[in-house]
């Protein structure tokens, strides 16, 4: 455990091993909620919160499952943790911050089926991180997700004003943009074409 390993985690979670563009998780919200920058920011921040907390909680629970030797329950336990966390967030936001609650709307409930959340909870276990690394990884994975969502929404807002051939309208053009973005992010890793 050192500062260097933390910095490596931060940089790889945001840039070189971005959860959306390199690990291909969270593509549904990328396509669904990146039409406007406002909703992209809200969605990104809500997801960041859920990823961070659920990674840490799932890490703790996995240690318990491991202790009792019932790790095959991993998937079921993790998804329950995530679903209840999202429900909790829903209740807390409704009570304390109705404005944010209204602006997030339906996206809040959809975080449960966002595969970035379950994906990063599983990755933390696979990579064998400790508690601090888990927290940092969860938080910066969320930041990486938010950043890609904002980048995409900016491009798509501009795209609204251009003429797109009919078969490409909607999802196909968004996927191709995501592909080009992924190539740009690939530059951070420096892979050879």
């Amino acid at each position: 455990m050192s500062i260097a390993s933390i910095i490596t985690i931060v940089i790889s979670a945001i840039l070189t091993d971005n959860i959306v563009l390199s690990k291909t998780l969270g593509i549904c919200p990328l396509l669904g909620t990146s039409k406007k920058t406002d909703s992209a920011v809200g969605m990104g921040l809500a997801v960041t919160f859920v990823i961070t907390v659920s990674s840490v909680v799932c890490y703790g629970l996995f240690k318990l499952l491991d202790f009792w030797n019932i790790t095959y329950l991993q998937t079921i336990v993790f998804i329950l943790v995530i679903a209840s966390l999202v429900q909790l967030l829903d209740i807390v936001l409704k009570r304390f911050s109705p404005t944010l609650y209204n602006s997030l709307g339906i996206y809040l409930a959809l975080i449960t089926t966002n595969c970035t959340v379950l994906g990063s909870a599983n990755m933390v276990i696979d990579y064998g991180y400790n508690l601090l690394e888990t927290f940092v990884f969860g938080f910066f994975t969320g930041i990486g997700f938010t950043m890609v969502l904002i980048l995409m929404s900016g491009i798509r807002e501009k795209l609204n004003r251009t003429h797109i051939p009919k078969p490409f309208a909607g999802f196909p053009i968004a996927l191709i943009i995501a592909g080009i973005l992924a190539m740009a992010f690939g530059g951070f890793t420096g892979f050879a074409f």
Binding site: T24, F171, L175, I176, G179, I180, A182, G186
Partner: peptide, 10 residues
């Protein structure tokens, strides 16, 4: 890479 996947699917 992921980029190729996005573009092929699009």
């Amino acid at each position: 890479t992921a980029a190729g996947g996005f573009i092929t699917l699009g």
